[in-house]
């Protein structure tokens, strides 16, 4: 019994670390722009398809397939900001509707370009299985978890140590103050949105080392990310890791002890409870 619990927890922990990276882009956008990107899940899915296509056509390994996708996603983000979001700043409802529109377009695109069948890739150069007792975890998942940690640390350092990163945080704290300090808020927002989308490509590429992409992948990754951001509180990078780990472990325990179909239940219940009782997040400070 204890063994089963321990295995479930370890598996959940690894998943949680991976989820942290999936939610990162959403968190950056929310933290800086105060905007919930309703198309986040769709962008994750799109990036997974991108990885699939890049790997299929070029024979690159998944683990580096994000390199061509990253600048494209960044550019798309900047364009979406200047083309749409910038014109609807201050009307959050319109922004939500806009992003839902974008989400629908992406879903369509994925279906038209990729069909409805799931897309999987042959193993990357990382393969094999790590055995912990009777628990078997593939090395690709472990590697993904490690990459996630590294990426989170890099983004955290970027936000707290570089001038651009600090301007982003300043813009998120107070728009007028940021203006006064001579920060071009629009450019910062465009950058943040671009960054938020670009950050989706890395987890997507690594997810493709052990997962399929299909036209409904967006559902899972969208809500999952919102839950983590809600738990973490106001776009705090440092809060993402514990939040994601809680989500991962809760999910894993329910899958083991209740039913696999119920895997999303603990996440949403946790999410709803946290929103109700601690709207600033479990790990939010302000």
């Amino acid at each position: 019994m204890l063994d089963v619990v321990a295995q479930s927890v370890i598996s959940g922990l690894i998943n949680g670390l991976i989820y942290a990276m999936v939610a990162l882009g959403l968190s950056v956008i929310y933290g800086v722009m105060d905007l919930i990107n309703f198309a986040h899940g769709e962008f994750v899915m799109l990036a997974m398809y991108f990885t699939f296509w890049i790997v299929s056509f070029s024979g690159l390994d998944q683990t580096v397939a994000f390199l061509p996708a990253l600048p494209i996603f960044f550019l798309v983000g900047v364009l979406i900001y200047y083309g749409m979001l910038n014109r609807t700043m201050g009307t959050p409802l319109s922004q939500i509707a806009l992003m839902l529109g974008v989400a629908m377009v992406i879903r369509s695109f994925v279906q038209i370009a990729g069909g409805t069948a799931p897309k999987g890739l042959p193993p990357s150069f990382i393969f094999g299985v790590l055995n912990i007792g009777s628990l078997a975890i593939s090395y690709s998942r472990v590697a993904t978890a490690v990459v996630s940690l590294v990426l989170l640390i890099i983004v955290h350092l970027f936000l707290t140590k570089t001038y651009t990163g600090l301007s982003m945080l300043a813009a998120s704290d107070d728009r007028t103050a940021a203006y006064l300090m001579g920060i071009n808020v629009k450019r910062i927002y465009a950058l943040a949105f671009g960054l938020g989308l670009a950050l989706v490509t890395i987890p997507a590429a690594f997810l493709m080392t052990y997962q399929h992409a299909d036209p409904s992948s967006y559902l899972r990754f969208g809500l999952l990310s919102w839950c983590i951001v809600a738990l973490a509180g106001l776009g705090r990078i440092s809060g993402i890791i514990p939040a994601a780990i809680i989500v991962g472990i809760a999910e894993s325990l329910v899958v083991t002890f209740v039913a696999p179909e119920a895997h999303s239940l603990p996440i949403y219940l946790l999410f709803i409870l946290v929103i109700w009782l601690k709207p600033k997040g479990l790990f939010g400070r302000k």
Binding site: T88, S108, I112
Partner: peptide, 22 residues
Amino acid sequence: IVLGIYPAIFGLAIILIILFKP
């Protein structure tokens, strides 16, 4: 004819309305 095209057009219609008839 083209599976899954209609959500795209629907989505585009929404985007256009929000942008041009806020």
